[in-house]
Amino acid sequence: MIQTQSLSVYYGDKQAVRDVTFHAPAGKITAIVGPSGCGKSTFLSSLNRMTDLIPSARIEGQVIVNCCDVQDRNRSPAELRRCVGMIFQKPNPFAMSIRNNIQLAVREHGQRDRQQLNQITESVLRDVGLWDEVKDRLDDSALKLSGGQQQRLCIARALALKPSILLMDEPCSALDPIASATVEALILSLKERYTILIVTHNLAQARRISDEVAMFWMNDGAGEIIEQGPTETVFSKPNHPIAAAYFAGTSG
């Protein structure tokens, strides 16, 4: 479960996200939609403190992930990120073998037993439907895989850490339509076991896969949420006039 309270994100003096209060229920897919450059990705990366990597970024307000305050100084970002998996727009497997892509982080987090590691590898690759495609070449470079396979490997890599939450930043937008459909089906299949947040440009996709929708809009140079609720309600009866125009395809 993810909850934010009056969350604002700044890059230096510039505000990127303003006063976002948001809730993503456990075990559901929540889609975040809106035009490009309105702070969706920034919002997403503030949830697992990836904003720490940008020296000028600063966060105000509260983020609660699994009942813990994300900004708590006693919790290391590494520990947080272990239970919050993240998938990026461009598939970014490491330049190493498929096996090591999955096992590197698991080993780092304390699992050394080879048999256990191989078991985890097989089970997550099965979860993402990649096992049959790659089981004979686990020691080949991950960069030899196709774009869609790479993205599924990245999802498997995140699942291997047994997270409870998955953050996905436009996971299908760099893929061709067929690979995109495969990954979309995969995301749907993960729904029961994980709390999923997915940023997408594709309204049809949001409508197909999500249970909840939050819509971002640029207001005075910073992103705000202007509409939020169950997917069907939001799409059929949006409250905010801008949201209505956006869904109807007449704005943004």
Partner: peptide, 11 residues
């Protein structure tokens, strides 16, 4: 606890 210990050594 196992995770936390390894976190400590990593820090």
């Amino acid at each position: 606890t196992k995770w936390s210990l390894s976190t400590l050594s990593r820090l």
